[in-house]
Amino acid sequence: MAQASTQTTTPKVQAPEKNEAGEVAIQLVGVNKWFGEFHVLRDINLAVEKGERIVICGPSGSGKSTLIRCINRLEEHQSGQIIVDGIELTNDLKRIDEVRREVGMVFQHFNLFPHLTVLENCTLAPIWVRKMSKADAETLAMKYLTRVKIPEQAKKYPGQLSGGQQQRVAIARSLCMNPRIMLFDEPTSALDPEMIKEVLEVMVDLAQSGMTMLCVTHEMGFARQVANRVIFMDQGQIVEQNSPLEFFKNPKSERTKLFLSQILH
């Protein structure tokens, strides 16, 4: 009930202006989440249109990762609504599976399956979730491995690849499920500087193909280049959102200014 009142008092502050043409891919309405006593997400309202590319940034512990992990239900939210591709996330396992099939995710630490080859990593979900034949799945996997520029590594195990290569495999693995939405959870934070570029190139290529993307990252160059919108989070709230141009040129809130001054040197 307390949440209901907060929803009614501050409903439109953060709601984006609706684009007439755009269809909504993800809608979060008054989402709250707690880790035990800690209120980690506070009254999140966000609508993401199809084909939109959003960069989420903010200091560590601000709830950015938790936010995108709620979108494919790796984390459960306690109040509010999350609607992904027209499906509302509830405790219903079938719906959660439907959403997860449509939403790809790339993790900070890649999370490749070390006991499977690169090719098997990519074909696993198409075969077992999409019920594709092995041959079709392998063709598909090779297509995406070529797209992330590492088809020659298909027979190797993840442990034999560099960090940048592993992250590109992880992107290919997600793409093999033909997701409509891609979530990136700090995809370049665990990489050595010389490998960040190769992963960002793949992400830019993906962005240009019209994929709906939500990306938690501190790569401000990437944000400037591809994002439609930059969202700044602090202490579990969305503090500011704007086009990248405005966001970096004229940050409005004090917290944003402080954050930008710390990360842009």
């Binding site: 494919n72 790796l74 599976d97 997860r100 099939r101 939403v103 790809g104 995710m105 993790f107 630490h109 999370n111 490749l112 399956f113 696993l124 979900a125 077992w128 979730v129 992880a170 693995r173 997600s174 499920m177």
Partner: peptide, 22 residues
């Protein structure tokens, strides 16, 4: 690591498939 469960879940694998395959 927890990341293995999460990666499997994010791909839409069910509990038993996650266990058996990953």
């Amino acid at each position: 690591p927890k990341g293995q469960y999460e990666a499997a879940q994010a791909l839409g694998l069910s509990y038993w498939k996650t266990m058996n395959l990953i």
